[in-house]
């Protein structure tokens, strides 16, 4: 059986293979999470059923096992995201330090709600739980980077500087 997509090749395949080698030989399933992350990145920030099928086939696990993982963990997206996905911490320490109000300002500025993508495809907002940086509350993660001790001014400046 061959899958509908063919994203696991070249560099992507190499990266996934490195992760497969990170686990015992007979435990290819362990590479499900890194494979999902790498494929999601390569696909512009989200996954599709066909991509998950391809991963399942590549790792030799049933597709449903991959769907389970891909829908259990919060960092996998099943809807397109913006080029910069803003993961906004919603949890207690950030809340105590004005995280909600600041998010409201962010939504206003970008004109989108959590789960939506700006018209130019540049940004999307996602509400997430504590990112383990509560000392820098309020904070968010954009792409891979943490931005802490945010104020409206600081946040908007960061956004403006992004490509």
């Amino acid at each position: 059986m061959s899958t509908k997509t063919n994203i696991i090749q070249g560099d992507i395949k190499k990266r996934i293979d490195t992760w497969i080698a990170n686990y015992p030989e007979d435990q290819r399933q362990s590479a499900t999470m890194p494979a999902l992350r790498i494929v999601q990145e390569a696909n512009g920030g989200s996954l599709t059923n066909d991509l998950m099928d391809e991963i399942a086939e590549y790792l030799g696990v049933p597709p449903i096992a991959v769907y389970e993982v891909a829908t259990f963990y919060g960092n996998y997206n099943h809807k397109p995201t913006g080029r910069h996905s803003i993961n906004w911490c919603n949890s207690i320490s950030c809340y105590l330090r004005g995280g909600e109000e600041l998010r409201a300002r962010l939504e206003e500025k970008l004109g989108v709600k959590p789960g939506e993508v700006t018209a130019d495809g540049k940004f999307s907002i996602k509400k997430v739980e504590c990112l383990g940086a509560c000392g820098g509350a309020p904070m968010c993660q954009i792409g891979k980077d943490y931005h802490e001790n945010l104020t409206e001014e600081k946040l908007f400046k960061i956004l403006d500087e992004l490509e």
Partner: peptide
């Protein structure tokens, strides 16, 4: 020594 990365699940 290896690393396994989580993906957003407390």
């Amino acid at each position: 020594l290896h690393v396994h990365l989580g993906a957003g699940a407390y």
